[in-house]
Amino acid sequence: MNRIIYRENLNDFVTLMKVDAELVAKKAKPGQFVILRAEEDGERIPLTIADYDRAEGSVTIIFQIVGATTEKLNRLGVGDYIVDLAGPLGRATETSEYKSVAVIGGGVGSAIALPIAKQLYNEGAAVYSIAGFRSRELVILEDRFREISDKYILMTDDGSAGEKGLVTDALKVLIESGIKLDCVIAIGPLIMMKFVCLLTKKYGIKTIISMNPIMIDGTGMCGGCRLTVGGETKFACVDGPDFDGHLVDFDEAMARSAIYKNQERSAHDDICNLFKKEADQ
């Protein structure tokens, strides 16, 4: 049981929660994740650790409400308990060798990119952050990113905040401006990471991406999170979640991420209807 000690709605669909988890906080590093269950008999879902405070013994998670489990999680408030939380899982993001990095976050992916950007910045690297969202209402973590970036570029699909365009547009401009990057770290929807990788491959810039596939245990037991990297099958939970983006089979990963799409939609609708009923009463 892990107590929620702080919560904040970053926008209408994305929530930040700080949770008591002393042992996890003690070991956590940027890029790692936890697996949690929002309630008894609930699903196990992986969520990346957005921040941690070893002194306080807490970890921060940021999640987008996309399915039944995140919907239920979002109903919990300060003082409530998450029934199970285990971690930190996966390998930490290796940042020490980089001196000049573009960190790209797409949507809620920026929450995962933030601690990595922060670590790079604290290690003295030049950090160029690019964050992309559909529109102004969905922008999250802008101030926190600005604090730890040498340059922060905000992109929206409709131009309602920052510049109009995709993160790849901004990355292209950045690269062509003559700034030398020794690595690009991209975290966000699979389709975004795919196109970032196609672009950086052209320029020959090493690119690290973070996978967030469906998984159960997070310790290598189920194999549900498998993906093809450089022609080999890897498990995101124990071999990742970070991989060399130029080697990842994104099309396969996208097909795999849609496996329960129909079931999830109906589960999500069921939960929504349930909550609506409660609200009506």
Binding site: D217, M221, G223, R226, L227, T233, A258, I259
Partner: peptide, 14 residues
């Protein structure tokens, strides 16, 4: 083997 609908027994049983 990475098509949707291929499970390890571990995953399916779990």
């Amino acid at each position: 083997e990475n098509l949707n609908g291929v499970y390890s027994a571990n995953e399916y049983l779990t």
